[in-house]
Design a protein around this nucleic acid. Sequence first.
DNA 1: TGCGAGATGAAAGATACTTGCATAACGAGG
DNA 2: CCTCGTTATGCAAGTATCTTTCATCTCGCA
Lengths: 153, 153
Amino acid sequence: MAPLDSFDLAILRILQKDNRTPQREIGEAVNLSAPSVQRRIRRMEADGVIRAQVAQIAPEAVGLPLTIIVQVELVSETPDAIDAAKQRFRDAPEVQQCHYVTGEADFILVVIVASMSAYEDFTRRMFFEGANVRKFRTMVSMGEVKTGTMLNI
Amino acid sequence: MAPLDSFDLAILRILQKDNRTPQREIGEAVNLSAPSVQRRIRRMEADGVIRAQVAQIAPEAVGLPLTIIVQVELVSETPDAIDAAKQRFRDAPEVQQCHYVTGEADFILVVIVASMSAYEDFTRRMFFEGANVRKFRTMVSMGEVKTGTMLNI
DNA sequence: TGCGAGATGAAAGATACTTGCATAACGAGG
DNA sequence: CCTCGTTATGCAAGTATCTTTCATCTCGCA
């Protein structure tokens, strides 16, 4: 995997703001022809530098107004138990983000749901029924101060 | 703002996975012509249902391998103090996500940085120097189990 | 100096996007 | 029950963008 040069970074800076910018326009901004821009984008996609190209949807506009952050602590922390928990969280459609972390908690989840009762249902499926969870702490978001992935590159 | 019908939701389901799917292809999937698909996408952009269309970049590929979740507790919780903190976090390029939450903490931040010393520098700018922060708790991500925004619609 | 790998830009061809227009569906009001 | 106005739709044509090809260039290295 070839390292990224300053052209690649300049292209990424544009694409992470708006990936529908025409290649011609990107080329003008970075001093490269449109085909060159395209080849670099393709290479970065193949290398996994660009993970996906997506539309970001406002959750409240599609009936999912609740964002909840959850700290999860496991009972058993054997590798198998941790892998099982990871798989469980990965497969849950309500889970937007999940991090395995150091510190007092084992996992931090960002969950988006339609209502509190939907969240209650989620906790039952995820944290009870032999789920190896010692305890979990719920923090309800009262406001999305900042969202998205705008890397500082 | 017109409510979303099942066509809109079907289009969103496709776009949040891959927004470079051709409109013709989307049209075939949802039983609509390409121009209709386009008009619906434009309307949802104008209404703010679609917030942005972006490329998702792998942080570690651009020299930002550290993801850190921070719980922040303020000293003063007057509206002015809270707004000041929000503005501070919003303006910091290292902050990817910031939620104002209920519970023991006031804010949850997701911070992406190049190194621990970059994080230390960040904490000095954000949490010291008269920043109205009583305490903050750092949790370093040992693994991104799941990332992104794939709403369950 | 000469070679080879890799990247580049110009141009042509293919694909996708956009617009104009006539028609059809839906509601509100007579 | 009908008519009208509003809105959404598909088709077709025009425009812009993307993609491929190919000749050239650059750079590292022998």
